[in-house]
Amino acid sequence: MAPGSDRYASRADTAAFLVCLVLSLVALALPAGLKEPIAGALRRTVLLPVLAVQRQAVASGVARERLATVRSERDSLVLETTFLPELRAENDRLRALLGLAARLGRGFATAAVLHQAGVADGLTLVLSAGREEGVEQFAPVVAARGVLGLVRTVDPHTSVALAWTHPDFRASAMVEGTTVYGIVRARRGERSGELMELIGVPYREQLVPGTRVVTSGLGGVFPRGIPLGTVQGIMTEATGWERTYVLQPVVHPSEAAHVIILSPARAADTLQAAFGGRRTAADSVLLVRDSAGVRIVRPPPPPPRRWPRQAAPPPQQPAPPTPPSGAPPRLHL
């Protein structure tokens, strides 16, 4: 490989060139039956190491590509898995809302909750339906499981609802299936916004934990029978006067993604059945089999509901000096 002093081609150079050229042309002119054995012999000897290196290089490149693909697939799966519970929960909420809409039948508008960043989030809800969609001021806002709040301001295509967590929220409530009435509001104190208070319950009425509290229909805003919460225990009591109970709300505003806004015209309705309340005879049908075959028969309508202001007051009972056994636990919240 020493640099030659004479770079011009000599006869020997030309001869070597011609020999190599002829050999190349001979190789080119060889029949296919001879080309392959020579090429194969070269591949198995001279080219074996370099082909092995090349094969490794290619395999390494392919492995790297596959690794990147596998990583991206894994990341996609992780991402999908991350959102899966949320999607399932949203699916369940939407199905529940669809079921509620079917049970409500008429007089409502659906809306999505537009999340807002800031301290007001959770106290007020911006809804994606407004005047054009039939929303009116003071319209009840409900989720599939119960009360969320009521509309405070209405714009053409959006509205702002006061959630039950808001300090100004009040709803007339009653214990389901009884004539025990009270007012529900957000619990004040350190855990405000997570629990409700049922205030103004007559002292003689004792509610056991787990008792369901629904809207009473009084006040002309919320229809009767929409769930508000369940009793957790007594919070305070003014001896001989009234008790205040702590309620576990059935739905929290932060959980709501889609809501139903009821028309104020339905304030006089009873929606107990729509929210899965205790079934009444009006909700039932009879399957009758007779000579004409099998047919569905609705039972006779129930007697008219006795509204609390018409109901006879229950017999007065002396207030026990101490809670009897089985009384709801006093909560220190």
Binding site: L23, S24, A27, L28, L42, R43, L47
Partner: peptide
């Protein structure tokens, strides 16, 4: 050697 991996045109790269 180059032709060995493309035997259909064996000899062309050599030329």
């Amino acid at each position: 050697v180059t032709d060995a991996v493309a035997p259909t045109a064996f000899g062309s790269a050599a030329v």
